[in-house]
Design a protein around this nucleic acid. Sequence first.
RNA 1: GCCGCAUUCGUCUAGUGGUCCAGGACAACUGCCUCUCACGCAGUAGAUCAUCGGUUCGACUCCGAUAUGCGGUACCA
Length: 511
Amino acid sequence: MSQEVRVRFAPSPTGPLHIGGVRTALYNYLFAKQNGGKMILRIEDTDQTRFVPGAEDYIIEALTWLGIKFDEGVHIGGPFGPYRQSDRKPMYKQYADQLIEGGWAYYAFDKPEELEAKRKEYEAQKRTFQYDCNTRAQMQNSLSLSADEVKRRIESGEPYVVRFKFPADTEITVHDLIRGDVTMNSNLLDDKVLFKSDGMPTYHLANIVDDHTMEISHVIRGEEWLPSAPLHVMLYKAFGWEETMPKFAHLPLLLKPEGNGKLSKRDGDRLGFPVFPLDWHDPKSGELSSGYRERGYFPEAVVNILALLGWNPGTEQEILSMDELVKLFNISHISKSGAKFNVEKAKWFNHEYMQMHSDEEVADMFQPILDEHGVKAERGYVVKVCGMMKERISFISEMWDTTSYFFVAPTEYDPAAIKKRWKAGMTIHMAKVIEILDTVPFEYNAIHKALLDDYIVGNGLNMGQVMNSLRLAVVGKTVGPDMLTLVMMLGKDETIRRVQRAIDTIGEVEN
RNA sequence: GCCGCAUUCGUCUAGUGGUCCAGGACAACUGCCUCUCACGCAGUAGAUCAUCGGUUCGACUCCGAUAUGCGGUACCA
């Protein structure tokens, strides 16, 4: 049935998957799932010179991490395989031949150096050379050469390419689901190479042949493809596949956070956020580019962030699960203009997702970090700390800095805090705190009454002054949760040890 | 250069001819909460809807021009 929705994500294995590509994959996935259709992963590796080892696995791993699943693809097979274009190599030539027979394409013998020279020549005259209906007669191809000559060259093994023969002066309209009709005149379009001299098709031929044979119903891809969409439409026409031509939707680009321009590889680490889903170790340069996963982003958060960068549900809800996105997704709500990535908002999203994780899950993520710091703590204690403190952080990497005093006694005291909080006579008050802790039953309400009500309030002392000094003694800084709760967590002995140590270390001051 | 696409608060966006003196979110700021720092809550500020024309009784919404940005212009995808 040609009515079934079948979409494909078709990356090129030339490096790590860019975050813009991830979004393209996500939109394809949402669209497919919403319509009960199929999501296909096709690898477009027609340029063998740009192959990067590991890239294909990286793409699969990244999308798997994000929860973008495929129904067919290189890694899982399917009824329309193979799904890697290099594995489909033998099938393309017949289609190129079909085009030539139909008068839609021609052989061209111009060598790369000759074309380069031609471009230079035009450039010198401040013009741009384009291999098209106006210039092809002066080039070396099956349109300008005699049939015998063409035959001779091919039989002698001379390398050739197959170019599309764009009909002159034809208006070509591409209907785009996001932008409406986009019309271009064929005179301005060049005779693109469809079949390369190395026997591989170019993207243009391969993507049409594959989309057709794989019965793709919708092509959802980046805006950078819009200029070549008329070529693709013409190819469907040339093959006589107009009836089943997929519908097109060209997505707006993801821009850099500052200034303008397409988000590129280097921006991420420079601006403090990743442009890749996972860490990527470049096999050639050894360079490391950081990924969302390793930076502590939750996959659900990344999906949410990406979904809303260029699309909106039409309501004011911003936190959306994959299931909700599948239900709500709608191509007509995709915006037309490029979106800049906002680090602050991304952080906020991650914070929201942090709160949605259970204390146990947060503890699971935190445990390896505790191990690194050589901390041995009971599971129940770690879970409790995580439960109390997760609301303060956005990334698990921030947990140690905000909770270390739960596990390790402070070794130094913030000088600014001492100046502000540790006033004259404080050693006496702290000694009293120790006395209270030591004599009163170690229980929240009892301590609260003895220390806060009877001692501090009862003696007309400044609540903040005393409690903050206690905090300084126990934490080392003027941060943290409710003081008594913290004391209860640490236990009587540990608290007393810390307070005594602060008395010994800071000592009495004048002010 | 040529072709194409785009243009609403700092950022992401709502808005599909009147209900918009343009709504929400992040960030900012103020206040509340409070033993600190956060969180949370409440509130404030922030957009001559790129500019100029046109169509219309009426335009952020339609049309045109200009400007700016981006994309494309490879035997790369």
